[in-house]
Simulated assay, not measured.
Amino acid sequence: MVRLSRAQQQERTRAAVLAAAREEFAERGYTDAKVDRIAERAELTRGAVYSNFPSKRALYLAVLVGSTGQPDAVDAPTGGLADALGAFARVWLERLPMTGDPTAVGRLRSRSLTGLFDDEPGRTALAQVTRLEALLLGLALESATPHQARRVRLAELVLTTLNGAGHLADTAPGFGDPFDVAHACRHLAGLDLADTWDPPHLPYIGPARLVQDAWEPPAELPDQITGHGAGFGADGVIAVLGSGRLEAAEEAVRAARPGDRITVAVVTGDPAEIGRALRLRIGDITGCLRRVFPPAAWPGLRLVLDDDALVASAAGVADAGDATEAAVRVRAGKIVARAGGRGAALAVAAAGDSTTTRSGEAGR
């Protein structure tokens, strides 16, 4: 008889819990599912379930995250902005339940988070990750079209349309035709939204503090956009953003100099629930982008999920949590600029390579 190691036994227990949970959620939905029944299905104790997942919500999110998988590539659109939007909408809409699917199965299929978070941190995180999704789609649209216009407002409008269709799939299954929704998204390309980048608070952000601190790159983490290593040893800007400050990613992107490498490390004080929700949403949007756009049009920034605060610690950010915003610029193996607080990502991205030390720190 082969004796399993403790790690192997834990992995087997975890897999059994996830399989049982998927069955329970598919049959009864999130609200009516019971942890005791999940434990019974897995032939485990209630304590064994909670030793792997701290709450039913964390377990549900783990089931959803496990359903994303690796997307297959599709033909990239060749007809400009309208075709890109139509292709993106079609891929996004594939997750919606089929007519006749039971409600619980449909919500698992669509990876719906409707009604899952009724607390302020959860709602804030979902609002902020939606802003990040719009940035990622907007950057892909900007790269895929010859014009130099900002496309984030257009991306926001497309995601509003698609999320509305997703909500109706939850509340009124069978209402509307996904092909019509995709067609409508395609025609949104013709709108003139006069999109510019000029947030009102930017003139009040102080400069980054120029330093000469040692940079010890953390253990490698995968870039959520490309699937490859993020490459923390390279020069560039690293922004550590909590789940409540994800919108600051655009501040770093817009302030960056041509050729700057921007890395966004996402942190949270609640990796079991908020962290999994962010992983799910980011995995869905990046999966769609990889299927629709060629690699040359993928957003140029690196995006990592810093669940264990490895990047935050290397950047000197203590107690990284949902409200965190901090950034450093790395050059030639040293941190040459740093800032913390609101506006930190912008301040560091805008910082030059001068060695003249300036006082002040963003967010003060």
Rank of each mutant, 00 (worst) to 15 (best):
L246V: 14
E40N: 02
V304S: 10
T286E: 03
A165M: 10
A350F: 00
G352R: 02
V237Q: 14
N163F: 05
K334S: 10
A230G: 10
T161K: 13
W215C: 08
A277D: 00
M98N: 08
L81M: 09
L221C: 06
V240M: 05
G283S: 06
P258G: 01
Y60R: 11
V264Q: 07
P271I: 12
L81V: 04
T45P: 05
R331M: 07
V240P: 00
L289T: 04
F232S: 01
E24A: 12
G244N: 03
A234Y: 00
L108P: 05
T161M: 14
I262V: 15
A144I: 08
W215N: 08
D322S: 14
E27L: 12
D170K: 06
P102N: 02
E23D: 08
V152C: 02
L188W: 03
P203W: 07
T171V: 15
A82G: 13
A214I: 05
D83N: 02
F117H: 13
W92M: 06
L139M: 14
T196A: 12
V65C: 09
A125K: 00
S55C: 06
A349V: 01
R291A: 14
T124K: 12
V330F: 03
T355A: 12
A134F: 09
A16I: 00
M1H: 15
F179A: 09
Q9R: 14
A255I: 13
P218R: 00
L141S: 04
R291W: 03
A272S: 14
E250N: 14
L162N: 06
G174Q: 09
V91K: 12
T13D: 02
E40T: 09
V2L: 15
G164Q: 03
A362L: 06
A297M: 01
G236C: 15
A182D: 04
L139V: 11
A344S: 12
A214S: 11
L303I: 14
